[in-house]
Design a binder for these strands. Structure first.
Length: 191
DNA sequence: TATTGGATCGCC
DNA sequence: GCGATCCAATAG
């Protein structure tokens, strides 16, 4: 049984959403392609007081979808060349999101190989920018509805996995917070 | 308007 | 370990 996550799922505390996304399947249908993968690593960025969050200094042109309704994609370009995918959480007006850091490729693996221009399965989606490249995600999907048919998350009711929580990666401030989650011993978690 | 640096990746 | 690459954010 496959159940698409509804907006209520995202309209909850971000840490809870970040944890519960692990083991669920991200699906992207674009240009006649269908690709999916199991979410194995996430990070939470929460509220106006999180110094690592783009929303730390208030609303800007880039981060405004973080302040909107839950259940929408926040996609941004970083380092001038890499995209990162987030899911907006919590109530409208409260800026929070979950960064999708890694997937275990499931369906459409050959399409992912072509987009990533590499063969190695374990290197296709083990990082936030790699996920976006493999899934064909760029800023045209910023603000996309996660309850649509283009990009969404499915609960396939698979066995729950053991989860590890650690500090977030690639940030300067806010390292004290253990807001990174991943599935223990999963080979597709980023380095 | 000008300057600075980044929720990364891949190659050296 | 370091350069790529460009745009958003901030300062002037």
């Amino acid at each position: 049984m496959k159940k698409k996550l509804n907006r209520k799922f995202y309209n909850r505390p971000t840490l809870k959403v970040a944890r519960e996304l692990l083991g669920k399947y991200l699906v992207v249908k674009k240009e006649g392609t269908y690709v999916s993968g199991k979410i194995v690593e996430t990070e939470a960025y929460i509220g106006p007081d999180d110094p690592a969050s783009h929303a730390y200094r208030g609303m800007t042109r880039r981060n405004k979808v973080m302040f909107g309704d839950p259940g929408y994609a926040y996609v941004y370009l970083t380092y001038g060349m890499h995209h990162c995918l987030n899911f907006v959480t919590e109530r409208k007006g409260f800026p929070a999101a979950v960064l999708i850091r890694a997937l275990e490729p499931s369906e459409g693996i050959e399409i992912m190989r072509k987009r990533r221009k590499i063969e190695d399965l374990k290197n296709l989606t083990n990082g936030p920018a790699k996920v976006c490249q493999a899934l064909g995600i760029d800023r045209t999907l910023n603000g996309a509805d996660l309850c649509s048919d283009v990009i969404y998350v499915e609960d396939r009711e698979n066995e729950p996995a053991k989860i590890v929580f650690t500090s977030r990666i690639g940030i300067k401030e806010g390292k004290d917070k253990k807001w990174r989650f991943y599935i223990e011993n999963n080979e597709f978690v980023s380095k």
